[in-house]
Design a binder for these strands. Sequence first.
RNA 1: GGGAGGUUAGCUCAGCGGUAGAGCACCUGCCUUACACGCAGGGUGUCGUGGGUUCGAGCCCCUCACCUCCCACCA
Length: 909
Amino acid sequence: MRTTPIIEMDKRFDPKSYESRWQAEWAAQGYFVCAVPGAPPGSAEATATGSSEAYCIMIPPPNITGKLHMGHALQSTLQDLLTRWRRMQGRNSLWLPGTDHAGIATQLMVERDLAKESKSRHDLGREKFLQRVWAWKEQYQGNIRRQLDLLGASCDWTRERFTLDDGLSRAVREAFVRLYEEGRITRGEYLVNWSTGLDTAISDLEVEMRPVTDKMWQIAYPIAGGASDERVVVATTRPETLLGDTALAVHPEDERYRHLVGKQAIVPVAGRSIPFVADDSVEREFGTGVVKVTPYHDMADFETGRRHGLPGIQVIDRKGRMTAAAGAEFEGMEVEAARELLLAKLRQDGFLVHEEAYLHNVGFCQRSGVRVQPLMSTQWFCDVSSMAAEALAAHRDGRLELVPASWGKTWEHWLENIRPWCISRQLWWGHQIPAWYDEVGNVFVARSREAAAAQAGHDRLTQDSDVLDTWFSSALWPFSTLGWPEKTADLAFFYPTSVLITGFDILFFWVARMVMMGLHFTGESPFARVHLTGLVRDAEGVKMSKTKGNVLDPEDLIEEHGADAVRFTLASLDAPGRDIPLDPNVMAGNRAFGNKIWNATRFALSKVDEAKIPESIDFDRLALPERWILARLSETAAGVDASLEDFRFDVACRDLYYFFWSDFCDWYIEMAKPGLEPGNERLLVKEVLLLTLDRALRLLHPAMPFLTEELWQKLPGHEAIHPQTICLAAYPQRVPKWELSALEAEKMKLFRETVTIVRNDRADKKLTHRVKADLYLQSAKAGVPESAVDAIAFLSSEEAKRLLSSIAGVRSVMVAAPPLGATNKHIRKGAEITCRFDIPETAVDLDKLRLALTANEENIGKVRARLESTEFAAKAPAAVVEGARRNLETLQLERARLRAALGLDAEPE
RNA sequence: GGGAGGUUAGCUCAGCGGUAGAGCACCUGCCUUACACGCAGGGUGUCGUGGGUUCGAGCCCCUCACCUCCCACCA
């Protein structure tokens, strides 16, 4: 005997009461642990499915530095949604979790921590410092898992990886050595982006251009060996680099300066002679048309210098201070101070011709915020040009699909213009470069120190002190996490992965590099499809930032609304190519949706007695409401599947929301109520109620895992669907047999319209729902549109009467002329429907009627004009013409009704 | 300087060539035997501008304007 479950369930749902319980249960049961065909049995025995069809998503590994932000919450929600959906479809679905060592970010945080003890990493030394970072990592790594658990993530934690763990480190060394042996990785001295804030080189991608108002100075350079007063004027924003000038450049076709090419100029203050060179890159219109060339302190000048075989002079060092080469009086000065001193000297000697404010773009170190200093240094570079070509080809031939596809052009442009990737960093935390040097500087690149020693023939070797750019190890993530370079069962089964979900902001940093490395090392794109999400913003669409104080914390939101509401909200806002404006009101609305689901279940459980979710149902024996809701269920299942295939999470959520709230709760449950009354039972109503609820919960499960599991476990008969958990129950599919015929669909439409008529009339008269209505039906006058439905017969049937009584407070339905004076007549499907209430007829709101008449006549005018156009009749499809004709007829009947109510003649013309 | 996206109700956004939609907000009436995190009803639109294609354009084409964001070595 079932007790009455309604007593057991609270009137309000409380996500906190079950969310953590279910996450713990799922983990304990190992539902998300994948067993791979051919793999040795182990903990994976508890696996969900033995399916041989793989589905795999690699998490974009969050930094171990800390805390998940809204972007992680969004992306994790979508990844989990897809994984749960595929898992329920029976795929062997792996969502592999992990974290990134995040070289610079992590090192900075630990250094900041050290600074509290007034220590620097140099005080500790490399060994001790790294021990400290590892300790720090151990402390924070669990945080990521805890947060993903809170969100309901169905990761396989037995496969969790870390970019610095042994396996991944091995993969990194393997990749590095292979690329080196192929000649793609080289070491050399180049002008690189130097961050004095981080004391390391950074890649082009880590440089952020920002507009800055500087000054543009014009400086005169005397001509050597010319007339004593002959000078040429040069414009510059960085006068201090003049000390490192090794040439002046002019455009080869600039008549103003052509005569100078081959001559020498004298660098003011420094007094050195430097040549004039002619170079196409000089813009004649800009500045004075003469450019100072400082190869070691300017990217463009570096290239110019190379073209002309010019030497370079390093006048600024890696700390941002002037070197000895800048001259004794400048040596050791900060750049700013050196600039002031130099300007003073120039001014004093009459070399400073002009100065003005100047707005231009300047490169800043994205991470530390300092101005990037171009600096000559020895670094490791990876030539990715051929890999980029492969990545381009994969995109063009469809092996790699970007969603939304509009990112394609950006992809092409970046890869077509790619430059060598500076992969070495002067940091300690990261993968130390697998290169060793002997006493005389010979380099041995190898997979291990032993291998390097074997190459060298001795062990007097020192390892390169630099580490690799964090993104180098991330680039290997899709296959290094599966055991590459070993040929593991996981790699064979799950690689290439199915989809990647990440933010567009790391399209180049990460996605492009994974595709390049994946294609290079495995011959396959690491994933077939990439869904790029937008940026999570605040309710007003403003970017979240600490300084603006508008940052939302996923953990707070989960605490307040429950994980399911957070997930549903994020997923429903993920429209292609758009950012995600996160409004707490919307979140509250979706929490209310959870409450609605809770209460619908609570209602059903209180009514179904001994009934169970039926294993099958005889659709043909059902009454219209049951047939209708099953039809809607089938359509919704079909729609959700299609939407998820296309990454249209917004559409899938909208359809689910509408189906559950409007179709199921507002309409079906209301229609089911009379059929659930003792002694009045409609055939199989309880079974259909349970069946629909079961399917709806399963459809919703990927988006709202906790609530659906909690409720589904309460449904009688759920064990027959899956003995343990909704997580592994089959995802509902379309059932074509359940879909309604056109006739039935029309009947349902007529019924709903009739309900609305009654409710409208009641609201117009300001009556409460308690005042019952009497309905009068009679055939409408001539000119009524044809209809397949016999409206009068249908609406006056016992079945319809009972439904109308329950849902719309209709006391009686009479096939008769309405009492004299009745004004609220409505025409539907050839029937004139009049609604009367048990109260004196209130005064008709004439203004409202007049407005309605005006609108009606406007519409008639429009439709008639279309119908009278010969072109419309000739060219529009017949169905459209016919639709317009019917429309006109209905509008005309409506007009007659309105005119009668207003006491006007029936026909105006 | 290139490129992408956006411009639809008060707000945030859907929208498939055929009479403009949702949620939230707002107004009215309701504690109707699941739910007030609720029920029912309601109002609101020059679909950014100007052209074009079409019988018919929010939707397709072109122009312009404004907003967001990427990429880019005019010193």
